[in-house]
C-alpha cells in the first residue's frame, strides 16, 4: 500500500516537473538552444536538434507519467533521460565549463545544487521504473496460463 502511494507521488512529481520543464523551454526555444549550446558538447546542428525535440519529449513523458499509461516504459525512459542530463551536467561542471543548466529556467547555472536536484529526480525515476517493471512481471506471473 505504502509503495503504491509512493509510486503515485513519484509519478505526479516527476510528471508535473517534466511538463513544467518542457513548457518553459517551449516558451523560448532560442534561449533553450543557447542553454544547450553552453554545455559545449554538441555542434550547432546537434544543439538545434536537441533543443527543438527535447521539450516535446519532456511534455510527452510528463503526460505519460501522470496518466500512468505505459508507465514502465515511460519511467524507464525518464530515468534514462535524467541519467543523461546528470552525466552531461557532471561532465560540464567537472570540466569547468560555465554552462546554463537549462533545467527549469533559462538563467540557472550548473552548480552542486542543480546536480543534487537532478540526482534526486534520477533516483526517483529509477525507483519508479524498477517498481513498475517488477509490478508488471508479478502481474504476468500471477495470471493463470490460458492454455
Amino acid at each position: 500500500m505504502a509503495l503504491r502511494i509512493l509510486e503515485r507521488i513519484f509519478r505526479l512529481v516527476l510528471g508535473t516537473l517534466f511538463i513544467y520543464a518542457g513548457y518553459t523551454k517551449l516558451r523560448n526555444p532560442f534561449l533553450f538552444e543557447m542553454a544547450v549550446d553552453s554545455y559545449r558538447l554538441l555542434p550547432a546542428t546537434g544543439v538545434i536538434l536537441v533543443a527543438r525535440s527535447l521539450p516535446w519529449l519532456e511534455v510527452a513523458l510528463g503526460g505519460l507519467l501522470i496518466s500512468g499509461w505505459k508507465l514502465r516504459y515511460a519511467a524507464a525512459f525518464t530515468a534514462l533521460l535524467l541519467g543523461g542530463f546528470l552525466g552531461a551536467m557532471a561532465v560540464a561542471y567537472a570540466g569547468g565549463v560555465e554552462a546554463n543548466c537549462g533545467c527549469f529556467s533559462m538563467e540557472e547555472r550548473i552548480s552542486p545544487l542543480t546536480l543534487a536536484r537532478d540526482s534526486l529526480l534520477f533516483a526517483m525515476a529509477l525507483s519508479l521504473a524498477v517498481y513498475s517493471w517488477k509490478k508488471q512481471t508479478a502481474q504476468f506471473s500471477s495470471t493463470p496460463n490460458p492454455g
Binding site: F30, M34, D37, R40, A44, N100
Partner: peptide, 19 residues
C-alpha cells in the same frame, strides 16, 4: 531582457538575434 551564461556559438546566437 534575457540572461544567458556561458559560451554560445555564433551560429546559435545569430538564430536568436535574427528572431
Amino acid at each position: 531582457t534575457e540572461k544567458a551564461v556561458g559560451v554560445v556559438q555564433y551560429a546559435i546566437l545569430s538564430r536568436y538575434l535574427d528572431s
